[in-house]
């Protein structure tokens, strides 16, 4: 590819990532509601964990500031998930039901790349919310700043790999539509499982040993629990390389699965309507 061609391709891809931003900007009501939702959720989470620690110094190896920081960051990180595009209407399920999924296979851009670029736009949009929330929470003292020189870089690497895993898990659910047609309930189930096993509901340190052992064989704790535990100092920096290696293995495994699913899906596109 020539440099001019490469620039043109990047420009086209950037235009696709902009879709999320533009559609959100056209709906200021949605943006206000997101701000209120995130704000109220962060507020309640901080109040809950502070109240729980009212008569306790340390629980499950976590002090109050660590537990509050973990729980609040988990709430903020949930904004990084791919957006719900039901109202756009641009969800995978809507495309399958209305037959417009066909266009994904007629465009000059391969469908898997289009899906990835749209998701990048979603996650970049979510990142902006996270950064704004993080800035406010650290200023207010709700979330402590990372302790130690290597904690922040280690957290960022781990969080990035976690987001790759989040994307691949959501892609698997979207691709399921090629076999099951509808996936809204599968999305609900997955949302719960992912939230529970990643530590979004409550830090995984509070769960019984058998639960955390079983969970360590699944990819979910790599999405949130590992990066957040690194951030609050519950996982020491010398253990980070091992944890990051596990995350990288999950990225590779899930990439192989999604690659196979895309290939099989392409041979069974069924138009339901339109």
């Amino acid at each position: 590819m020539t440099p001019v061609g490469a620039v043109a391709t990047i420009g086209r891809l950037c235009r696709i990532t902009r879709v999320t931003w533009l559609s959100e900007l056209l709906e200021p009501g949605r943006m206000v509601s997101t701000a209120i939702q995130v704000g109220s959720q962060v507020f309640l989470t901080a109040c809950l964990w502070t109240a729980l620690y009212a008569h306790t110094e340390v629980s499950a190896g976590l002090q109050e500031h660590q537990a509050v920081g973990y729980a609040v960051l988990a709430v903020l990180a949930s904004r990084l998930r791919p957006l719900s595009r039901d109202m756009a209407p641009d969800s995978f399920y809507r495309h399958m039901r209305e037959g417009t999924i066909l266009y994904w296979f007629l465009r000059p851009l391969p469908p898997h790349r289009y899906h990835l670029v749209r998701a990048l736009g979603d996650q970049a949009h979510g990142l902006l919310w996270v950064l704004a929330g993080y800035g406010l929470c650290t200023t207010a003292g709700v979330v402590p700043l990372p302790d130690g020189r290597w904690t922040l870089p280690a957290f960022l690497v781990s969080m990035f790999l976690g987001q790759v895993i989040v994307y691949q898990l959501s892609l698997i659910l979207d691709l399921l539509c090629f076999w099951t047609v509808a996936n809204s309930n599968a999305l609900h189930v997955s949302h719960f499982v992912q939230s529970l096993l990643s530590g979004a509901f409550a830090p995984l340190w509070f769960f019984p040993g058998w639960f955390t052992t079983a969970n360590s064989f699944l990819p979910f704790q790599s999405t949130l629990h590992i990066p957040l535990s690194i951030y609050v100092g519950r996982i020491p920096v010398n253990r980070v390389p091992r944890e990051v290696a596990v995350q990288a293995v999950w990225c590779l495994l899930l990439w192989l699965i999604t690659r196979t699913l895309w290939k099989r899906a392409e041979s069974r596109v069924a138009v339901q309507g339109g």
Partner: peptide, 12 residues
Amino acid sequence: TATADWTGWLDH
């Protein structure tokens, strides 16, 4: 479209 998110927020 503007109400969709608010109902979700209220539920939450």
